[in-house]
Design a protein around this nucleic acid. Structure first.
Lengths: 342, 342
DNA sequence: TTGTACGCGTTATCAC
DNA sequence: GTGATAACGCGTACAA
């Protein structure tokens, strides 16, 4: 008996052996009792469970992972945590993965150059898959391919390589915005893009410019921002120089810049939104809905996208040779009061 | 040679044995080469590293954890991810932990009742410590104590139990706000609290009410919110009923409600902020700084708090019997344009 | 400095 | 249904 309490007293971890000894059964019996579909007698299960409870035993997931070769861990790599959109993505991914009893190992990068090191760490922890919302080089992608480790890009696609990805249709979203603005009679357009190394920004900006061109609006001025509030303000300042009385409508590559743009329009240029100028964004982050802004934007179906992402990753955990797939979801127009549209 | 390439072909993981065989050395030699301060000859190290590179070998962190009894994993349990404050906390914690080569296993709760299950999972994954920004029962705390597992509360303290915690001084923050508002001549105060099970809210609301009482303002009406934007709007609606012409100043238990309150004041009651009504919040989230709101608030020193939290956890990982400690940081007044103060 | 042998805590595979 | 025993991949005494 004194022997049984030993592990507790020593402050050590309680192992299945301790439970087995305490319950007077074999260690394998203990193991089986904690395995869902195992064949154990009622009597045995009850006996073991009581012993486990008394000793405070929990199976060691690390040891289990070693033998089952399943860590139940996935890596999530996020670059831009200041963009309010990503915390929401992370939350939804976590909710979905937890339905599969899979846990998230989180990696955030301050600098892009960290990513090689992070990939190493991801490999070391034997994650079963990785969701990336950041840019990877072809070499980096190949490291995943070589390992047969499921990799899924969230809101980015890779040219020259077929990869798994879940995206919001950036171009279609911009088309909707442009169409609405043109239909409402806007004539003088300006764009504020994101960083040039952001594919999402490239797609959104291209989508808007292309659609505008097709509708007869050429040479629309484009100012480059960096997704931040301040760069939205600065973007408008620069755009103003291209017009005598400012633009009719400004399309921003994300909501945060659109908000900055709105504030600059109101405070610095005394423009009424949307009477004097229409401003639209992209993402559908919560603060953009606050009635102080009430932004017209394209809301990304984050939950659906997260569901799809998790589903795709888990499919490929079980069937690593499944062919790469790209799933594109349409954003929905969230019609606020920051733009004059029908 | 054909044998050496085998692991790659078979799509299996490359182990230290594979590297050893390929390099013609023992497995322990490989192991040593990957251990920082080990004694290995230049020649051996070079030889092993080249083999490892060629085979794409990375040490298995799970197997390593099993033998070293150090998982280099910590759990972070967050309840309220919609509160924009917590993503920032998570980001800073991750930055700090990564300096110690420690990784975060993330748990978010949709419902409080999930927490027992989450604690189980945390234990199973052999995390070396846990940071909690959520309420735990005494029984739940005891489970950590019994395991000798370092537990740290972020922005909450527990009555009747000495625990590790890092907090922002909620009451002091509210005192600063109240003093400023009173000095500026405000007379008719209203409070919007958070959920009643939120200790942070209780402390903030108490801090404000208590300071107001000491300054001669008794029976200040308190309306209960739930930290959301909508409840901030609703809070003002209810507060308005307590005054003929509305309150002078409203103190909200967090920034998001303050923003909702501002919008309701402007849009629903045509009040000018801050001329007709002063509104203040607490936290210092990024959107509150946007000039559309320019909220006067108490900014939590999130980075400092995260540094302290990580430091305390890591100290207790190495010295589990270190006595519990509580570190309280002062927030700083962020003087915006939502309140008339000196 | 290097190699041998063992153990970390679990699941899986067998006999029984 | 139950109990021995062998892995899983690594770190580390210990011997050489």
């Amino acid at each position: 008996m004194a022997d049984n309490i030993l592990p507790e007293i020593k402050g050590q971890w309680v192992t299945s052996y301790d439970v087995a000894r305490y319950a007077g059964v074999s260690q394998s019996a203990v193991s089986r009792c904690f395995k869902p579909g195992a064949s154990v007698s009622k009597k045995m299960r009850e006996r073991v469970m009581r012993a486990a409870d008394e000793l405070g035993y929990q199976p060691n997931a690390i040891a289990r992972s070693l033998i089952t070769r399943r860590s139940n861990l996935v890596g999530v790599i996020l670059s831009d945590f200041t963009n309010l959109h990503y915390p929401e993505v992370l939350f939804e991914l976590n909710q979905e993965f937890s339905k599969h009893a899979v846990h998230i190992l989180l990696f955030t990068l301050r600098q892009e150059r960290d990513i090689d090191e992070i990939i190493q760490q991801v490999f070391q922890y034997q994650v079963e898959g990785v969701v990336v919302a950041s840019t990877l080089s072809l070499e980096q992608i190949d490291r995943f391919v070589k390992r047969n480790l499921p990799l899924l890009f969230f809101n980015r696609t890779i040219q020259d390589r077929s990869v798994n990805s879940v995206c919001c249709d950036q171009e279609a979203g911009e088309r909707i915005l442009v169409n609405s603005l043109v239909n409402a009679g806007h004539k003088l357009f300006g764009l504020i893009s994101g960083p040039e190394d952001s594919l999402v920004s490239v797609q959104r900006t291209f989508g808007a410019r292309d659609r505008l061109a097709r509708l007869g609006f050429d040479d629309v001025p484009i100012v480059q921002g960096d997704y931040t509030y301040e760069s939205g303000q600065q973007g408008l300042r620069e755009l103003m120089k291209h017009f005598d009385n400012g633009p009719d409508a400004v399309l921003c590559a994300n909501d945060i810049m659109a908000v900055g743009c709105m504030d600059a329009a109101r405070n610095e240029f005394s423009l009424r939104v949307p009477d004097d100028i229409s401003i639209v964004g992209f993402d559908g982050i919560a603060p953009a809905l606050w009635s102080g802004y009430d932004l017209t934007t394209i809301r990304q179906p984050v939950q659906r996208m997260a569901e799809a992402a998790v589903e795709m990753v888990m499919e490929r955990v079980d069937h690593p040779d499944k062919t790469p797939e790209m799933r594109v979801f349409s954003g929905v127009l969230q019609s606020g009061n920051s733009a004059r549209i029908a």
